[in-house]
Design a protein around this nucleic acid. Structure first.
Lengths: 268, 268
DNA sequence: CGACCTTTTGATTGGCGTCAAAATCTGTGG
DNA sequence: CCACAGATTTTGACGCCAATCAAAAGGTCG
């Protein structure tokens, strides 16, 4: 029910030391989390990683449909996603929404904000989600102590920017069929890379929790039209998509339909 | 003639000390340039500004239709734009292109690149252009010496990202009329803010060098349809646009048509 | 099992693209 | 200052892709 917001869904924070998570489970999780921090902390001397650990605020869990943060609201944290899918989207007055990214494990959320400091988009858990939260206050501390992080942050944002431009190109210049082909391929590659546990090499398939409405909101189509075009792709034997699992059946032809520059794929 | 590239147009660099620019003119320009560096260097102790001056590589001039850099090519410089308009765009195989930003005076170009270091978009001068060029090699030097710049860079990129998301929302969810209204308003605000000399408070108008084809390539419309819808807006007395000048006649109604959140405008 | 969500299918409409030609603007050289 | 070529804008006719409305079928979860 886009456009209508239940404030109770926002920031149901469980602090590490106060919540349901046992100290031991937490320690294990933190250790795993540390690996995931690579995207932001990968160029840091490893000795510094302990420092980042100390600055991490809490572990948080969200279940499907819960919001991590909300457009136009001052966010308290930014997040390193550990598991699950999160949709990042903007809403228009009448409830239409544009999803512009699905955050996957390893992605960072919440750094890009409007000039006044409020979030410029909302973040909703698509699946159950685990995330490491950093207080936005700590970001300054972190950067003051470890300036390398700032550059890393700039490059991560630049990468997001690059994807967003690609998305814009896709949405405004390609027809529905090409958009779908593009989206499925991109998503497939991203999941394979960032969430290998959700990828099966045998079947060339991934876990895929999105509804056709999600896809429509991403590509600027209605769920009805997504259904029609997706059926086409299935009939043509290019793709299979059911029961929360998506299989790429003919990668080459999909890439062709998607008008993807093969060189661009390699980069991901 | 999108899609066809004249290599002669790329990087016609004039070094400060080797080109047509007199030493005096250069010194004046650099001084002005320094002001324009605010976006990247604004948080630096002013003593450091001399250092950035030393790291600046050259002044460059481009005339209409020249390329500053080209998609998929390793760029040698990144730029601080001093005067003029530059279109940043991606091209599809068949020549269709998607312009996703017009760089205006004060903007930085060329930092966002693909993971392999090549430019992920092209930059073409819409008008005659003056830019300060920094060698990409020097960026590391610069940041090593002045770490604050990295954070500034991250925030600038985040701001670009925010605009790109907005653009995506606009293009994929709004009809042609709303897209145009949005685009004219946004452009008007940006020019007023970043190039005050091109803005006239009396007439509420700005210099506007874009063709309807540019606008179409920006908003995902054909030039034909832009022409039709633009005429509507003119007939309705909302806007005037001719002879390279664009006037906002009814800001309130335009904002309404554009479905712009008034709060969002204030932020710019 | 029943309520709700998601997907599918059909019929119809409309916005925007395409093609084409005329009109207007712009800049350049004679 | 005019003439002319090329670029840009305007206008019309027509077609198609995707939106909309509506309803049925299939899935999912409590």
């Amino acid at each position: 029910m886009p456009g209508i917001i239940d404030p109770g869904l926002i920031n149901p924070i469980q602090l590490c030391d106060g919540g349901k998570v046992s100290a031991k489970a937490l320690r294990i999780h933190c250790r795993q989390c540390k690996v995931r921090h690579q995207t932001l902390f990968q160029n840091l001397p490893s000795a510094y990683l302990d420092e980042t650990d100390r600055l991490r605020d809490s572990e948080q869990r969200y279940s499907t449909h819960q919001l991590l943060y909300l457009e136009n609201v001052q966010p308290t944290h930014f997040y390193s996603l550990y598991s699950g899918w999160v949709a990042l989207y903007k809403t228009l007055g009448d409830g239409r929404r544009q999803i512009f990214k699905y955050a996957l494990p390893g992605d960072w959320l919440g750094f890009v904000r409007a000039p006044d400091g409020t979030a410029n988009h909302s973040a909703e858990a698509i699946t159950d989600v685990q995330a490491c939260a950093f207080s936005v206050c700590n970001l300054d501390t972190l950067i003051a102590r470890l300036p390398e992080i700032a550059m890393q942050l700039a490059e991560m944002t630049a990468h997001d920017m690059s994807m967003c431009e690609q998305h814009l190109l896709c949405t405004s210049k390609k027809d529905a069929r090409a958009r779908l082909a593009y989206f499925f391929l991109e998503t497939f590659y991203r999941v394979r890379h960032q969430a290998p546990s959700e990828y099966s090499a045998n079947t060339h398939s991934i876990n895929f929790p999105l509804t056709q409405e999600h896809i429509g909101d991403t590509l600027g189509l209605t769920n009805v039209h997504v259904s029609r075009m997706l059926k086409q792709l299935k009939v043509d034997g290019l793709i299979d998509c059911q029961q929360r699992r998506m299989t790429i059946l003919d990668e080459a032809r999909l890439a062709e339909i998607a008008e993807i520059d093969p060189a661009a794929i390699i980069r991901h």
